[in-house]
Structure formats: structure tokens, C-alpha cells
Design a protein around this nucleic acid. Sequence first.
DNA 1: CGGTTGTATGACAGTTGCGTGACAAAACCC
DNA 2: GGGTTTTGTCACGCAACTGTCATACAACCG
Lengths: 224, 224
Amino acid sequence: MTDVLVIEDDDRIRLALLLALEDEGYRVRGVATAEEGLLRQRHEPADTVLVDLMLPGLDGFECIRRLRRDDDVPIVVVSARDDTHDIVAALEAGADDYVVKPVAIKELSARLRALRRRARAVPDPVPVLTFGQLEISPDAGEVRRAGRPVQVTRTEFRLLCELAEHAGRVLSRHQLLQRVWGYDTGDERLVDVHVGRLRQKIEDDPGSPRHLVTLRGLGYKLTR
Amino acid sequence: MTDVLVIEDDDRIRLALLLALEDEGYRVRGVATAEEGLLRQRHEPADTVLVDLMLPGLDGFECIRRLRRDDDVPIVVVSARDDTHDIVAALEAGADDYVVKPVAIKELSARLRALRRRARAVPDPVPVLTFGQLEISPDAGEVRRAGRPVQVTRTEFRLLCELAEHAGRVLSRHQLLQRVWGYDTGDERLVDVHVGRLRQKIEDDPGSPRHLVTLRGLGYKLTR
DNA sequence: CGGTTGTATGACAGTTGCGTGACAAAACCC
DNA sequence: GGGTTTTGTCACGCAACTGTCATACAACCG
């Protein structure tokens, strides 16, 4: 998921941009002035910034320069002005791209993707979910018990991740069938079988499970 | 000094571009077809490529895809077509920017600078990636096992780099197809074959791989 | 306490996923 | 242009996985 910050003083345009970008699958936030934008970006950094040039108070060029001073976030100018002079000045100030309003949302989205492809920063560490001595790493496709790798099958892994994602909360067999298998209907006993197999692998004593617990009549949950 | 390759079939336009860019301080070279461009770029790589979309023979989109397959060079499309559909398709194919002819040379130059600023930022911190006794240097295009150089093909190398870049994370066959081959759809077994070939070269015992691991049902990953 | 309902588990057969070698097409290199 | 390397397709076989079923066990209820 990509976070986008839109700095644009015209309420109608800003709203339209935000809605369209949200539609394209971005997580969005918008502000009306450069000052707000700088503050917001410092406080809660987005992955990409869209900025208008004609802003009240601090103008777009200065806004770009200050954003650049803080970090390396990709910046796209979205402006009504198509003057070469403006374009050059904005790019020189540190912008990565410049599009002229009105712009097709599909084009804007494609430009954002191209830019992010370029700007990909250092890879962040692989996240790990921990439940006591049980470790689950969805990205690495790995499960460990007391530090030792445990081999689980794809279905077991998905089931475990689903439970881990909602740690501490009961998930009914029906919910699990839907989320792990994509079944809308089917034999709910299937879940039992896989839970059982999973327990053999991740519990010290599969007979009296500590993490993957049964809630009679309700479903299963994963606890710490 | 920046080297720029211009792929443009119209002699007058190509010449005009080359002269203008030279005036801006770039070292330039030009070709009239995609085929020539690919060849030239492979043998004498420029730092940036400008490419037209309407080319005789291999068209611009395919040209972009093939350039991308070889390396990470910044690509700017310079086209007379301003259709959103074309713009999106070109960016999706791997272009970094898209400008519509006629374009002010000052703007083009500013866009090239912005792009190079961005492109230069990435490759610094990755001289050599190490996985146990396996060494990969993406920049030098070299792979070593226990200090000894290993000869891998271009595709194998790209596959290995992609896996190395996301070390420790599972990459699905689909993701690999997209990132290494640029295919949006296709036979995922293709990945298996190349993984197999790669294992023959980089693993001590290809039968039970230590680094290039299969995660059944999920994909492959590279581990230390 | 016996009946009832819900859960655990082992066995099994059908299916899926993966590794591999063979081969043809394409790209490459003098 | 011809020989060589690289790439992509295919088919086969093995191993692992999946879902179903039957049976045994545990919890709940009056």
C-alpha cells in the first residue's frame, strides 16, 4: 500500500484527486497549504507527495525545496501552468515529475508507480509475529518453534497467518473456510483436520494446546 | 558527463534532438530503430535512453520492455501521441517518464536531470550481497561460490538478483515472472526451470538446496 | 448417569506441485 | 551464414498435500 499526500488549496480539486487516488488503491491524505503539508509530512510521512504550485502563503517551489531538505520522498507537481519555465523551475527545485491539470487519473497513477519503482529504498526487515516461543513470519513464509524452523504446508500456513492476524479473537469455522479456502460453503470439519495437523507441528503437547485453542461451539483462536 | 541514446526513426527530429541535447552538455548518440538501439545499448551503454513509440519493426513498447530486461537505465519516451492509453502503457512497460512532442529542450533537459538524480540515488549501497559462501555483485554482474566465479546467463542473473534483493522473503512465481521477465501473464513453470538451472550452478548439492529454497505452494526465496 | 452434541485423529485415495531431462526455437557471436 | 549458447515448452514421475470418512474421545445437559 502506498501513502500519498496531496497539497492543493482548491477544495474541489483536492477532493477529486483524493477520491480518484483512493479508487486506484492508494491510501490518501490531503491538506490545503504548504505549511500544513510540511508539518504533516514530517509528522506522518507519506511515500509520495503531490503538490500544486499556486498555493497561498508558502508557494509550491519553496514547498518542494523544504520537502527535499527533510527527506528523499518522491514529489510530483500537479499544476495548471504548462509554462516551460515553471516546469524547469519545479524540477530544479527537486520535484521528480510534473503533470499539467487536468490529468487523467490513470496517467497520474502510472506515473506514481513508475516513480516508486525508481525510488524504492532500502528493504525493511522481515516482520515477525510472536506468540510465546512461536514465531510466524508471513513474508518469509516461515514458522519457528523455540527458534527451530517448523515445516508447515501452504494451507496450514495460511490458516496460521489468518489466526495470527486476528490474535486473541475467536474465528468461527465458517470464517476460516471463507478466508483461508475461499469457500462460501463446505464441510466445516475440514478446518478441524487442519487445525489438528497444525497443532502436531507447533504445540509442545498437541493434546492440550497452549496457543491454538478450541472454543467449543465457537471456533478457534490463537493466543500468546 | 551524461551519455544519452536517442532512438527515433524520423531523421530530422532525431538530428534536432541530438544537436539540442549536445548543446545542453550531454554526450549523445542516435539510432533509427529499436533493434539498433538495443544492440547499441548493450555494447556501449548510455546513462539515459530517449525512445520514440512509433518505430518501424520492433515498436517502442517492446523496445522499452527489452531495455528494462537488460538493465536499470532511465528511459524517457518522447512521442507525438498524447493519448492517456499510450502514456500508461509506456510507463507500465518500464519507462520512467513520458513527454509529448514537440517539447522544449529546456524541459526535457530538466526532466533528464531529475531522473538521473533519482536513478543515481539507488545503486550506491549494494556492492556485494553475501549468502553464506555465495556472493552476488549486481553492479559488476558477477556471481561467486566459495570465491570461485560462477558463469550464469543473463536471465539467471536477473532472477538471482531479484531474489537477493528480497532476501529472506518469499517471491511467488507470478511476482518473479513479472519482475524478471516483465510478463503479466504466462506459464509459471518457466520460473521452475530457471530456478533449477540456477541451483545446478550455485548450490553445493542442487538436490537439497541451502540458499535457493522452494516453499511449496508459495514460491521461492533466497536465504543465508 | 446416559444421551447428545461437538471435537480430535488416523487412514486413505485422489490431486497437486515440483524437479528434471529432452527438445525446438530464438538470440547471439564471430 | 553457420555454429554455439541461451531460452522457453513439454511431458513424465515422484513426493507431498488435500479433503473425506470413520471412529474414538470429550464436553455438555437434563
